[in-house]
């Protein structure tokens, strides 16, 4: 047993010595005048490790680049999504503006002669309880007080104050507002005044007046503020009382809560000064 162990010991030591001697020889031999064979061996042994390390480094580098790109993509995606939402919202606003403009154009068609001089105003603030509205107009537009304002459907009110590109309107529902109105045939004249709510009171209509619920009242132009022929309100209630005149209520033709765009008719004032009428 001891002999076998000794044999193994000697064999192992001998093999190790052979390996060392071969390595010693490899440090002395140069192939083709190049580096020693030992260096070639070391390089051959190290090549897979170096290659693997390089590949791993490349992989890590690619991974980092990929992560960075992913971050950029996510950020870009979020930015684009925000932009899309913004564009959608803007599209909705523009769609509404287009609809309002189309309505305004149709209204202008009803008041031919003012279309070329009308000024577009965009509603930026409204308070129906106070009967006020603020609209923004182009900075170079000259808007005087009492300029009529119309929207899709009919009359909105009149300008009471302008400062730069901002104009304040008094809505026809304002308690101090009054519009001279008539029926379509012009046989019946009256005065529509604001009630402070979303309705108008039509005054000075005699008991003999031929008027029904649903009749549309137009501006008559007798007040010198509004041009004639603009739809103002539709009759919603008629009561006969002991008073001298009928008690008539009307609803504005324009949905004042939804108005976004109005048309101002500045030329009407000039025509009024000139004494003309459309």
């Amino acid at each position: 047993m001891a002999r076998v162990r000794e044999n193994r010991y000697i064999t192992t030591r001998l093999v190790l010595l052979w390996v060392l001697l071969e390595l010693l020889a490899a440090t002395q031999v140069r192939t083709d005048g190049g580096p020693p064979v030992a260096w070639t061996w070391v390089r051959s042994l190290a090549a897979p490790v170096v290659g693997t390390t390089r590949h791993l480094a490349g992989l890590v580098d690619d991974l980092l680049v990929g992560l960075s790109d992913t971050q950029h993509l996510v950020a870009e995606h979020l930015r684009l999504r925000t932009e899309v939402e913004e564009l959608r919202a803007r599209n909705l606003l523009l769609e509404e503006d287009r609809t309002a403009l189309a309505e305004a154009v149709s209204v202008l068609g009803g008041v031919a002669g003012y279309a070329d001089s009308a000024v577009l105003g965009r509603c930026s603030y409204r308070n129906l309880a106070l009967g006020q509205m603020e609209v923004n107009v182009p900075a170079n537009a000259v808007i005087r007080p009492d300029t009529p304002a119309i929207s899709g459907g009919g009359l909105v009110g009149r300008v009471v104050r302008c400062a730069g590109s901002s104009c304040w309107l008094q809505l026809i529902t304002h308690p101090a507002a009054a519009v001279a109105v008539q029926n379509r045939s012009g046989t019946l004249q009256g005065l529509a005044t604001g009630s402070g709510r979303l309705t108008l009171d039509v005054e000075y209509l005699p008991h003999s007046a031929t008027i029904l619920v649903g009749d549309v009242l137009l501006t008559s132009g007798a007040d010198g503020v509004y041009p004639p022929g603009l739809p103002v309100a539709a009759v919603t209630r008629i009561r006969e009382t002991d008073a001298s005149f009928l008690e008539v209520a009307a609803a504005p033709q324009v949905d004042l809560a939804q108005v976004r765009v109005v048309l101002l008719l500045p030329k009407w004032s000039r025509r009024l000064v000139g004494g003309g009428s459309p």
């Binding site: 001998l14 010595l17 052979w18 001697l21 071969e22 020889a25 002395q28």
Partner: peptide, 16 residues
Amino acid sequence: EPVIGPGGIAWSATAV
């Protein structure tokens, strides 16, 4: 020999 090492291997292997 010009290289030291192979001889040691060869001679010891022959001895074995």
